[in-house]
Simulated scan of single mutants.
Amino acid sequence: MKNIRNNEHSDRRSAAKDAKAALVEAFRAAKETAEPTREARQMERRLVAEARDKRRAEREQVKLDERNRVAAEAAARDAAVAAAARAEIDARELADKNRIERVLQDEAARKAKRDQRYANRKAR
């Protein structure tokens, strides 16, 4: 079907201008009617964002506490291992020292017996 109306350029321009004006007016009207709910929505969004930030901070604090606890346990384990190793080294040193003392005492006792035998032989 042919368009029977013959629109001139100026007619089309004015129609476009009127349509744009109607769109802008409809936008302004929608914005004004949504104004009371907009503030409520913004407040709700702000509260949700604050709650989310608070939960994130709590999670980070829990993670930090867990890391500190793990680090403290690792330090305590390392200290216990070091103390056990030191105790083992001290025990070995003490055992070696006691063994050396016993060897020296045995050597002194043998020398004393030998000297006694020589003294008895000389006395005969």
Rank of each mutant, 00 (worst) to 15 (best):
N3I: 15
R5E: 11
E8L: 12
H9N: 11
S10D: 13
R12Y: 07
R12Q: 07
R12A: 12
A15M: 11
A16P: 02
K17H: 01
A19R: 13
A19M: 02
A21M: 07
L23T: 05
L23D: 04
E25G: 00
E25M: 04
A26V: 07
A26I: 04
A29P: 00
A30L: 11
K31E: 10
E32H: 03
E32M: 04
E32D: 03
T33R: 15
P36T: 02
T37P: 00
R38Q: 07
R38L: 14
E39H: 12
A40D: 12
R41I: 08
Q42I: 05
Q42T: 02
E44Y: 00
R45F: 01
R45E: 12
V48C: 09
V48S: 13
V48D: 14
A49T: 03
D53E: 15
K54M: 10
A57G: 01
A57C: 01
E58R: 10
V62T: 07
L64G: 04
D65R: 06
E66S: 07
E66V: 11
R67L: 13
N68G: 02
V70N: 04
A74N: 08
A76W: 01
R77V: 08
A79R: 06
V81R: 12
V81N: 08
A82I: 00
A83I: 02
A83D: 06
A83F: 04
A83P: 04
A84V: 05
A85L: 06
A85P: 00
R86W: 01
A87S: 12
A87L: 02
E88P: 05
D90W: 03
R92A: 13
A95S: 06
D96T: 11
K97A: 11
I100G: 03
R102H: 05
L104S: 00
Q105A: 15
D106Q: 09
E107D: 14
A108L: 08
A109T: 06
K111M: 02
K113E: 14
R114I: 06
Q116R: 09
R117H: 08
R117M: 12
Y118A: 07
Y118R: 14
A119S: 15
N120A: 15
K122D: 15
R124Y: 09
